[in-house]
């Protein structure tokens, strides 16, 4: 069973057993925002030209979240750059993708208390489902097997958000070179998406605000 790109990224961004998130809120948002745009690119709904998003096919996608994102891209035409959309989508992407996984029955919401604050944590319902994206990538990458386009984008997002060491652990050094080789074979809009995501993650480090 194959999940959507952002769902896959959501699981790789969390420890599959504890459900602990592996990156900061802001960075997770950028990664998930990138993944949501990636879903639309893979569907052919949008394209990226000169660092801006262009709508190619306004036909609504099947998934309701992808549909909502596309509708917004069409509606808010004053905002065009991938950079701005990443920042905008990044604000709510975590919650939205979690809700999608919740509706599909892949995660359950539990409340935890952390530093006197009550927080909702999304735990995987089935550990195998949660661990599958990372395991799938690790196996294929380490055997130098071909990957689906969606999986190449997923590994690109993992690299862009500096998650490689955590997701692939001992294999990461070994996998790295082949992964980068695959990335260069992606169509240029998808490469542009990954570049923009990595640049946004880096700019957030340079930002004077969290």
């Amino acid at each position: 069973m194959q999940l959507l790109l952002a769902d896959d990224f959501f699981f790789t961004a969390h420890d599959d057993t504890t459900g602990r998130i592996r990156l900061s809120e802001g960075r997770a948002g950028l990664g998930l925002g990138g993944a949501l745009l990636g879903e639309l690119l893979l569907l052919g709904s949008i394209d990226i030209e000169r660092r801006a998003i262009v709508v190619r096919d306004a036909h609504p996608p099947e998934d309701s979240l992808a549909r909502a994102v596309l509708e917004q891209l069409i509606r808010d035409e004053s905002v065009t750059t991938v950079r701005d959309w990443l920042h905008y989508l990044g604000q709510d992407a975590y919650e939205q993708v979690a809700q999608r996984l919740l509706r599909a029955g892949h995660v359950r919401a539990t409340q935890t208390r952390k530093m006197l604050r009550t927080q909702v944590v999304y735990l995987p319902v089935d550990i195998n489902v949660a661990a599958w994206p990372a395991a799938r990538l690790a196996t294929r990458l380490s055997k130098r097997e071909p990957l689906s386009t969606a999986d190449v984008v997923l590994s690109g997002l993992i690299a862009a958000t500096e998650l490689e060491a955590q997701v692939f652990q001992y294999d990461s050094a070994d996998i790295g070179r082949y992964l980068r080789q695959l990335l260069t074979t992606l169509p240029s809009p998808l490469r542009a998406l990954l570049s923009e995501t990595e640049a946004a993650v880096g700019d957030a480090v340079l930002s004077h605000r969290r």
Binding site: A68, S78, Y88, D92, E95, Q96
Partner: peptide, 20 residues
């Protein structure tokens, strides 16, 4: 149809430009 941000009601009305 699922609203853009199910978790935060008022967020529905915001546009990307104003949010940014």
């Amino acid at each position: 149809t699922v609203p853009m941000s199910p978790a935060r009601g008022p967020a529905k009305a915001k546009t990307a430009a104003t949010a940014l």
